[in-house]
């Protein structure tokens, strides 16, 4: 039985291709999470500000993105951009774009939640001590907002990683796509191929996402005061 596994993972470039697939998965997730955090913070601050135009339009945007299945967005950007606007973006770029559109909306909502959940007194007692607005944000507001933000950001990151297999449908050879191809080819001679390959995939996802959530639990504990 172990032989069948050894056969699969040593045949041709199977293992190397799995790692390439993993690299693509990680690249898309990391880029999308990074961009979402960068864009989501100002968007979230605008959502929690008094500026009505921004509050309403960002809220609409968030609802729209949440209703829309990711797959539809991927198809929309991948196929429609090229046929309607004649813009041909590489599939990986399209997927980063789509995941960033989604992640920014979620991130903005997280930031809004973190900032508005801070009691008004935190601002006032900081001001009463003579802190400038910059010092107030630096020493009082941001450290507390970041602590409140952390679980949500970690959750968004793992959700993002778990959602990337959708890029399969626009023909990106991510981890799951590669696995499927390997199973298709080796499965003819090796009936256990799907068990081995998808089993390995399972552990890879676990090995990535579990440390992330452990790390988050560690930080939450360290900050618990």
């Amino acid at each position: 039985m172990l032989d069948s596994a050894i056969e699969i993972f040593t045949a041709g470039r199977n293992t190397a291709r799995l790692f390439e697939g993993l690299a693509i998965t990680l690249k898309i997730s990391a880029a999308a999470v990074g961009l979402s955090i960068l864009l989501g913070i100002p968007a979230g601050l605008l959502m929690s500000s008094k500026k009505r135009f921004w509050r309403v339009s960002l809220k609409l945007y968030l609802e729209f993105i949440r209703i829309m299945p990711i797959l539809v967005l991927l198809f929309l950007f991948y196929y429609s951009l090229s046929s309607v606007f004649n813009i041909n973006l590489p599939a990986v770029t399209v997927s980063i774009l789509v995941f960033t559109l989604w992640g920014t909306a979620e991130m903005a909502d997280l930031v809004r939640g973190a900032v508005t959940s801070l009691p008004r007194h935190q601002w006032e007692s900081g001001r009463a001590l003579g802190l400038s607005e910059l010092q107030l944000n630096l020493f009082v507001i941001v450290p507390q907002a970041v602590r409140r933000l952390l679980p949500g950001v970690i959750n968004l990151t793992t959700r993002m990683i778990k959602t990337t297999p959708f890029v399969f449908f626009i023909n990106i050879p991510d981890l799951v796509k590669v696995a499927q191809q390997i199973v298709e080819v080796t499965g003819i001679r090796n009936p256990l191929a799907s068990v081995w390959v998808y089993g390995v995939i399972f552990f890879i996802y676990f090995a990535i996402c579990y440390p992330i959530s452990l790390f988050s639990r560690f930080l939450e504990k360290a900050w618990q005061n």
């Binding site: 009691p119 007194h121 935190q122 006032e124 007692s125 900081g126 009463a128 020493f139 009082v140 450290p143 507390q144 602590r147 900050w223 005061n225």
Partner: peptide
């Protein structure tokens, strides 16, 4: 103030 407003962090 009336409400305890120490910085919790």
């Amino acid at each position: 103030f009336q409400n305890y407003e120490l910085f919790p962090h």
